[in-house]
Write a protein that binds this DNA or RNA. Structure first.
Lengths: 345, 345
DNA sequence: ATGAAAGCGCTAACAC
DNA sequence: GTGTTAGCGCTTTCAT
């Protein structure tokens, strides 16, 4: 692997390194003849500057780093697309790292990106980090004012910028929708409580019931243990008598599983059972009937987060003042809750 | 943003830069007292070396770059997971860039990663690149022997290493499965022909029919135009008389849409219509009934590709000899084609 | 019009 | 045991 460098080019052409450098930047200092000779050579050998050297020199890489738990999640992929849109318009490129929901990987990738690889980092917390509640690896960066913006899951106690949705309100509205469709025996399929977004959606569920003077039946609140088969856990809801007539699931996967189990037991959707999910993704559009869901506007979340980050990068005031931005949520009503679905309500 | 550097530490402690460097590496040359003083200071100020400087110095970054069209695709996310597994076991980190299926982004990200950011790059071709057939941006890297391995979609005319599946054979087997389920009026939902993987799956479809002495009804071959609504295009198949009794779709999305359209027209699945998809992903597991699909083993593809790349990186022979590895495919038989589904056939 | 030199942050061979 | 130096690839100021 012998890539041409300024040095190798200079040597080959019998000029100095700085002459080559200037020629490549079309500096008027260089005579047309020399410049042409150099450009010609560079074209021939496909010279491209080493990005590490550029980064070292300029203390600027033009890269934005993103850390997500994993790819393959529709919501995060929308966020990333939003980030890319804004970043690219501003002349930045985006590099993505996966935390696999592990704190160690999260920390190491942040170290990598923040120690020179990127000008700023956008990230959402790994589940493990959230569970352990140990956010120390972020402190040095926050203190130094390194450009850092969280989205979706973030350390609430720390003075950081974040772009989030109002999960409680969204959960309340989803539940309210089921109530408005005339459902009364509502069940909730949620995550373990340490996942704060799931927990807040649950709070919204409770609030909606309270607001409507309805009791919360704790037997109809299911907290999924992700290490065990999901279907078996959800099936429990259908064994109750009477079974629920409305289900709010805090993500689209749980909702889809519930929907399909309902088919198996022969329940009519949405007449006998209405199901609403969260996070309008790829699954929701491919079930039968299609799933009503809360829409998280991942694309806008990404855009907003990127804008916040770019402002931090370019302002360079230290420390950047923490800002929390809340992105609206919406509701898509499809066949799983309504016989007369409207795409956006 | 004032991050500590060896220089700033050395100055603060009144020692030289190399003393600090050595102390941090626990060099026996440094006296315990000095070492402790330095380590203490570094701990306090959370010193971490600049990765750009390290990269420049060592000409090795410990990073593997991956370029994929986009995230959010289950198959690619499995490939990436496989890559990470192998990479991390070998002490490498993985950084991902999106081409958005555009040649320009593909080229620029490759430039970035190959010019210092990574020790090697794994990638799958952007649709645009495949469509235009212009692979010139890969040539310099191939010539220089920069470690580069393709997976899934790759430039077949170029002397490169790639990990792929036998799409023709997989398509043949999927079709064969429909035939074995007693279906005879088979339809195919495919992609535009420039997507070679889709085209090869089509060849397999034709081969299976030929092998069984059955004619190919060109009216039942649908090539999707992704710019138009998918549902409308697929609905056409159901307007034929008689309608197909078996559908092979070259991806899971098309298969799911076909399945749900069949529900709408009241067809019984799989008795009146069997549907099989390709690429066993998140959608296939959440339809009703669940989709039979060809399994692509993305995880293994990622592992294999990473192994090939690591070998190139570490061998460092120039040029690396091109290798094509073929990953087996499988078939998962679920409810969409069989009343007695077996998970793995 | 061209080149030398310093420096970005780090390492390692070589003094002392 | 500690420091000096050269150099990774590049830019930029300051000579010449």
């Amino acid at each position: 692997m012998k890539k041409p460098t300024l040095k190798s080019i200079a040597k080959a052409l019998g000029v100095s390194v700085s002459t080559v450098s200037k020629a490549l930047k079309n500096s008027p200092e260089i005579s047309p003849r020399t410049r042409e000779r150099i450009l010609e050579y560079c074209r021939l050998h496909q010279y491209e500057p080493n990005r590490m050297a550029l980064g070292l020199r300029h203390r600027r890489t033009g890269i934005i780093g993103v850390i997500v738990p994993q790819t393959g999640h529709y919501f995060f992929s929308r966020v990333i697309t939003g980030i890319q849109k804004v970043a690219e318009a501003a002349g930045y490129r985006v590099l993505i790292a996966h935390s696999n929901n592990e704190s160690r990987a999260e920390r190491e990738h942040l170290q990598l990106l923040a120690n020179g690889y990127a000008d700023g980092v956008l990230l959402t917390l790994a589940k493990e980090t959230l569970q352990k509640g140990d956010f120390r690896h972020f402190l040095p960066w926050i203190q130094r004012g390194f450009p850092l913006v969280f989205f979706d899951r973030y350390p609430e106690k720390l003075p950081v910028s974040a772009v989030i949705i109002d999960d409680t309100e969204a959960g309340r509205r989803a539940t309210e929708h089921l109530l408005r469709m005339g459902k009364r025996r509502l069940a909730l399929i949620s995550t373990p409580v340490y996942l704060s977004v799931g927990y807040r959606r649950e709070l919204g569920f409770r609030k909606a019931l309270n607001d409507n003077g309805l009791p919360v039946d704790e037997n109809r609140i299911l907290r999924i243990d992700e290490r065990r088969p999901l279907g078996e856990q959800i099936r429990g809801l259908f064994r109750q008598t009477p079974p629920p007539d409305g289900i709010f699931a805090v993500n689209e996967q749980y909702a889809a599983i519930a929907l399909n189990l309902a088919h198996e037991t022969g329940m009519k959707i949405p007449a006998e059972l209405a199901v609403i999910g969260f996070s309008d993704g790829i699954i929701a559009r491919h079930t039968y009937p299609r799933l009503s869901t809360v829409v998280q506007h991942g694309f806008r979340m990404g855009q907003t987060a990127a804008e916040l980050l770019l402002a931090q990068i370019e302002a360079d005031e230290l420390p950047p003042k923490p800002q929390i931005k809340i992105i609206d949520t919406g509701l898509v009503v499809r066949g799983s809750t309504s016989a007369y679905p409207v795409e956006r309500l």
